[in-house]
Design a protein around this nucleic acid. Sequence first.
DNA 1: AGCCAGGTTGCGG
DNA 2: CCGCAACATGGC
Length: 264
Amino acid sequence: MRASLECGQVFGWRKQGDGYAGVLNARKVFVRQRGSWLEFEGVSAKKLVHYFSLSPEDSLERVYSEILVDDYVRQAVNEFKGLRILRQEPWECIVSFLCSQNSNIPRIEKMLYGMRKSFGAPLEDGFYSFPTPAQLCKATEKQLKQIGLGYRAKYVKEFAEHVARRPAYLKELEKLSYEKAREQLMKHSGIGPKVADCACLYCLKKLEAFPIDAWIKKVLEKKYGRKGGYAALSAFARKRFGRFAGYAQQYLYAFARANPHSLT
DNA sequence: AGCCAGGTTGCGG
DNA sequence: CCGCAACATGGC
């Protein structure tokens, strides 16, 4: 659970005692792992299983059997065994990765918390729901900048307005193929190949998506001898790791960050 | 102080 | 098609 919640795919969870606290379905949720069991409050078992990809159809063994094609991934999976790709709520997830660009994780968390606090609804213990598209539409660009979004403020506002006008938009995206969903996403200002791939992988459940950030780029260069633009690198990775390439990406990212020396 | 951060855009070549 | 600066800001 630690691996899944602290690997940079989601930004809203906080360590609390021996577990994690976050917000799901506009309610404060607490989760704690006891061996192979999960104890939880504030959320249904069904929702939790879905969110953490715990059902038999989401078996990690099946994923591992396809992505373990070389020693470097094997090493990464070994160190982060159990890490799962979550099924985040698309609206919040896409806004999160709009904010992630050219920034760092502590700061991204700060931006998202700021938006929750200023425009979401207060819950218990200083937690806030993530603002709905309508709620975030009320934010001015200036207010968003004050929260620390910088030039991303405009992107977030435009996206909020788009989704508020078309409530079914995100549901429609989920139904599309990886390629089509990605193409649609990239029509939005502020969403390029990387953010679109993050959205596809982390909330639209397109497990072949392989987001390439600065770390993964280094991995592909140093460990796989690959250079080139985004499209070429992405094609290489998806061909190499197959339909669960996104999982390979997630393990490689976690491993590279934890072991930067492995890239020298 | 200066570089980097889970990048994208708009430009010139 | 590619390379490159600008973008706002905070972490380190």
